[in-house]
Design a protein around this nucleic acid. Sequence first.
DNA 1: ACAAAAGTGTTCCTCTTACACCCATGA
DNA 2: TCATGGGTGTAAGAGGAACACTTTTGT
Lengths: 248, 248
Amino acid sequence: MTIETSSAISVDCAVFGFDGKSLKVLLIKRRYPIDDLSADDLKLPGAMILENETLPEAAERVLEESTGLSNIYLKQTSIFSAPDRVNEKEMEWICKFHGINTRRVVTVGYYALVKLNQGIVNYTHRKGARWVEVDSIRSLIMDHMEILADALSNLQKEITHTPVAFELLPKKFTIFQLQSLFEAISGVKIDNRNFRKKILTSGLIAPSGEYEKNVSHKPAQFYTFNKSVYHKAMKDKFKLNFINNWTY
Amino acid sequence: MTIETSSAISVDCAVFGFDGKSLKVLLIKRRYPIDDLSADDLKLPGAMILENETLPEAAERVLEESTGLSNIYLKQTSIFSAPDRVNEKEMEWICKFHGINTRRVVTVGYYALVKLNQGIVNYTHRKGARWVEVDSIRSLIMDHMEILADALSNLQKEITHTPVAFELLPKKFTIFQLQSLFEAISGVKIDNRNFRKKILTSGLIAPSGEYEKNVSHKPAQFYTFNKSVYHKAMKDKFKLNFINNWTY
DNA sequence: ACAAAAGTGTTCCTCTTACACCCATGA
DNA sequence: TCATGGGTGTAAGAGGAACACTTTTGT
């Protein structure tokens, strides 16, 4: 029954990206592997928090280091605080790797949404990181699989309540890309005509007048997210229909 | 740029209750006040986490201590990690009060939902705690006002997406109580006929056949929450209508 | 009698859903 | 000419919103 005063606190970030087909997450290889710890050596980018640093600041630092980007959409999810979440071998690796001495590491999960493009893919490749299709991931070190699953379920929930989808798309995107993104994240097929009607009448996106080039089908128009339309209205229009929108 | 390895981690709980009229939160007085710290001496119940204890466990312990209840609905909200969130005077009080020595306290916010009844009110009163109307609270110690505001906004969001409302009502409740609760939390008036229609046709509540007694108006029937109906259906009925339900 | 809340139906209108075909382009 | 996605309309049904009065009880 002693108060814990020597915890280290870390952040781990699930950095999501969308390549037009599927949802990807950024994984890195653990450096300095120890014997017995090399089997599952992929992990989410993360860091220990520094003195005089808040958790969001630490998460931003991780993002900056792993992607070279700042001003990324970043959201805290859960805390992973099981005293035995890091086993002895792992603890040894952590202390050695960071040059610290601690008995316990509590970690805070974040997820980040980035607009994937060739520049970022190149950057992360140079850093030895990989964008891996979320559905194909079977194991990660420590409890990172759990952290990733938590991040994903938070994203799935958030995308139905807030317009975070646009954080994953380039500034100019086609309606097909937007729809594919919703389908990839929710895992549900959407009727294209209904989707177009819905998204266009909402006023949330605006046509840019520009069209795709060099595509082997009728070129699609690019649209942009209309933040100003989004930010007005939809206040105090409290709807009764929430009751049937409940999700378990 | 040193890794922080001596943080203490605490949990602070906003415990919400509903008395049929307004939303209340449980506040306690800080014990052992220090000079200069007595002005705003109300705080949320909280505790430091112990060795071998997870954060949810710590939060449950706090709930048990302050309300005598276990198996309470409990949900983690945000983490408050600003290095200066606890000033020097407060830090002194914390170390003295807990008999520890630490430079930094990171706290994790939780909110809890309890079914208020006379027994609990009596219990908390004996403990020196008070149920205070949320709207009337102007200041709390440290950043507890911020923690409370965060808890409340999380609750407001959650109540429109999940059936947590029933956690705040007795097992048997009237439709009027349920409606009042939604109105109290959302701050919006709801049409009674539409509300009844909606909630009754949803199948989520079941009439108990019992009625109010000794009320100076037509006695209302008591209903119960129908968990089984809720848990089936509403899976994989993905709806397109989320786009216009987005809230900022 | 009066105050307070319980309980009850209908109409209008908006939104959701289901559904199939021709078009433009590059290979 | 073929493959690929772009882009379009309509009808039926469900659900949301607005709206007022009678009933029951205790004081």
